[in-house]
Design a protein around this nucleic acid. Structure first.
Lengths: 188, 188
DNA sequence: TTAAAGTTTCAGAAATTACTGAAACTTTAA
DNA sequence: TTAAAGTTTCAGTAATTTCTGAAACTTTAA
């Protein structure tokens, strides 16, 4: 993997963005490099291409594996491990979404569920709990919606993502759909 | 705003989560406190409730205003500024989404657009550009979809968020909808 | 069973980010 | 026009996070 200026600028950008996406700079760079590479890369390839210490590369690869963003290849007669991306770009976007929800939403839901059950001990706490319940309900709905979306086939996801300006009209339909369902009192 | 254990645990949690949501610990705590407070709070209220230096509170409030998450009140005959949340929880979730997209997606789209236009100077760069175009196209679609969703009324957003298990069925409909539209060659 | 080829761990150093507090600044009203 | 009441800025410090590199560990094949 030769680091041309074009590839380098993408990789560096992924590094900067990495931190906003939930991992650190070097992990972002490593992932950027693996995405662009035609052939799977060894830890040493990555270490030398990006001038990142071998130890750090090892930890970064572990992190990327925990996100399920990369997968390992073994070449017969070679003891090295080689890494490439796991699945299509869309599948990877999905993985990132799942992982971020788990890190950003789930802990808050858990906390809110617990606090809401406590008996309020003052006026202020009654109000606070009301607000917390609002947040909880919104996060829970969003969480369920997200789970539902994550469970769609890649084809349905394609449709969804391309939906664009169709969303508004679709929601009019959804409104009807939902009220029908309500009338049927959940005969499902 | 008296800091009961219940309120404190929420505020501290918001602080920890803050960093994942795009701002730092103290800004998260400040926002948590403002959300729970029945009455608008002055910078000094916040500073003393959270033991955060007055200067830091000032910067934090600026940050929250830049996210459009809080708004300022003026009390006649009082020169202090008082802060409360701006709009409903759902409106705030929307603001956070908008701001995060701007920080996390838009810069990448800009970069990718530029790089894709460059002439590839090797085999490797041809492949790299293919990958970059895939990412670009996905991000662009997601960005448009997000813009569309952001432009919905609060009521439509409510519908959307409550959609839950309806998503799958709705997408079957969307598939038909889209192919009709394609056949009409965009007579809109 | 050994040594070569590789990976992982982790203590400490480096880099980055966040926070304080005092000084500078702004606004208001008398 | 001044001083009181408030806000903002920012240099320096503290806290946190990331990174390195050497040592420990693991695996394989001869």
């Amino acid at each position: 993997m030769q680091m041309t200026p074009m590839i380098e600028s993408f990789v560096l950008h992924f590094g900067e963005m990495g931190s906003r996406w939930g991992f650190n700079r070097t992990v972002g760079q490593m992932y950027g490099l693996i995405v662009l590479s035609e052939a799977p890369l060894s830890a040493n390839d990555i270490s030398s291409a990006l001038s990142i210490s071998r130890g750090n590369v090892s930890m970064g690869l572990k992190e990327l594996q925990s996100w399920q963003l990369v997968r390992v290849h073994h070449v017969p007669g070679d003891r090295k491990e080689y890494f490439s991306t796991a699945g299509s770009i869309l599948e990877m976007a999905r993985r990132v979404m799942i992982e971020r929800k788990r890190r950003e939403v789930d802990p808050t839901l858990t906390l809110l569920r617990d606090i809401i059950l406590e008996a309020p001990s003052s006026e202020g706490e009654v109000h606070a709990q009301t607000k917390m319940r609002e947040i909880h309900d919104l996060l829970e709905s969003a969480s369920l919606l997200s789970d539902e979306i994550q469970s769609l086939s890649i084809e349905s996801l394609q449709t969804l993502i391309k939906l664009g300006a169709g969303v508004g009209k679709l929601l009019e339909f959804a409104d009807k759909f939902r009220s029908n369902k309500d009338n049927e009192a959940y005969h499902d």
